[in-house]
């Protein structure tokens, strides 16, 4: 059974100049233990579609879908209360800016324990012990000391590890990572990606990797979905996508990679593709 199945998801925003369609009839499928990468430029709706599924968009967003099934349960008709019990427990998300997604007024340990209290009912010593285990498992050095640190006392990479610790606290079945390494240095990026992949393999969770970096896609994904201006243009196995891209936009995107430069100038997406949609 598929872990996640979304059919015909559309998200629209009311703007001064009328409705803006940020996501246009998109289907998303994630199998158990699968890593799906959603690739696209800014404005392609790659983050918005996942935020809509998580119910994290403001009320001005109009979300419609024919079907939203997660792990055999229908997320569309579910009450808000039931949905809240799943989100943060079975589905969790990490974001691009680790330092700004943590609350600066509370210690890192407190914020992880909050998740444990809310979803698993752990408190006091039990919560502290579990938080310590989590910090250890995501490779935070000196975990005892870091439990009492505030986010500003940690580096960006360490904050992202705290976010990951929070996200995997309840052993989720699906983790959504929204540009988890974009704000980080390459060496830290490698560590975080290695950590995410190790956790994914160890816990057998589904992983959705939202990114604009084709290199990150090549190093993490099983399957890739390419989005542009709210539409899904192509979906393929990662090897197929790089070896034999079907859509002209995907071909143009791959040709625009600096490492694929042939000759003196890069092919731009505009020369290769614009107007062929």
């Amino acid at each position: 059974m598929a872990l996640l199945k979304i059919r015909n998801l559309t998200v629209e925003f009311e703007t001064a100049t009328g409705l803006f369609r940020a996501v246009d009839s998109i289907d998303v499928d994630v199998e158990q233990r699968e890593v799906l990468a959603i690739v696209g430029e800014s404005g392609s709706g790659k983050s918005v579609s996942m935020l809509a599924f998580m119910g994290l968009l403001p009320p001005t967003a109009r979300i419609t879908a024919d079907e939203m099934m997660f792990d055999g349960r229908d997320m569309l008709t579910m009450s808000a209360r039931d949905r809240r019990a799943i989100i943060g427990h079975d589905i969790s998300m990490i974001f691009q800016e680790p330092i700004s997604s943590l609350n600066p007024s509370f210690t890192c340990g407190y914020q992880v324990e909050e998740v444990l209290a809310r979803h698993l009912g752990l408190s006091g010593k039990a919560a502290r012990t579990r938080a310590l285990e989590l910090f250890d498992s995501v490779g935070i050095p000196e975990p005892e000391r870091r439990l009492n640190s505030y986010p500003h006392q940690l580096s960006g990479g360490q904050c992202q590890r705290v976010m990951i610790a929070m996200a995997i606290a309840c052993k989720p079945k699906l983790l959504i990572a929204d540009e988890p390494t974009t704000a980080l240095d390459v060496t830290i990026q490698k560590q975080i990606l290695d950590l995410l992949m190790a956790l994914q393999e160890e816990q057998g969770m589904g992983l959705i990797m939202i990114t604009h970096d084709m290199g990150v896609v090549a190093e993490t994904a099983d399957r890739v979905s390419v989005q542009y201006q709210g539409k899904k243009l192509e979906e393929a196995d990662v090897l197929q996508l790089f070896e034999n891209p079907q859509h002209p936009y995907t071909r143009a995107l791959l040709a625009a990679l600096p490492e694929n430069a042939t000759g003196d100038r890069l092919l731009t997406v505009a020369d290769g593709w614009e107007g062929q949609l």
Binding site: V186, K190, D213, G215, E219, F242, E259
Partner: peptide, 14 residues
């Protein structure tokens, strides 16, 4: 550490 889109690497990983 720099991620690269290399077909052989993808094959090995898969």
């Amino acid at each position: 550490a720099t991620p690269v889109a290399d077909i052989e690497k993808i094959r090995a990983r898969q």
